[in-house]
Amino acid sequence: MVTYNLIGAGLIVIGAGIGLGQIGGKAMEGIARQPEATGKIQTAMIIIAALLEGLAFGALFLGK
């Protein structure tokens, strides 16, 4: 039972990691393309990362 939970947690972390990587990478690309929009991109990035994080944590705690 515990093992299944741990596998699930691992899957969640993998998914969230891919998502966060995408967000961070795209944000970096955006900043590189338009350095003057850094502030706006960072804000949007943090918001989206937070939303994703909320989802991931929600899933983790539902499985706990």
């Binding site: 937070a50 939303l51 994080e53 909320g54 989802l55 944590f57 929600g58 983790l60 705690f61």
Partner: peptide
């Protein structure tokens, strides 16, 4: 509200 409360709780606890 659930995402708000879980996010803060989970981040700090973690």
């Amino acid at each position: 509200p659930f995402s708000l409360l879980v996010r803060l709780f989970a981040n700090i606890s973690a």
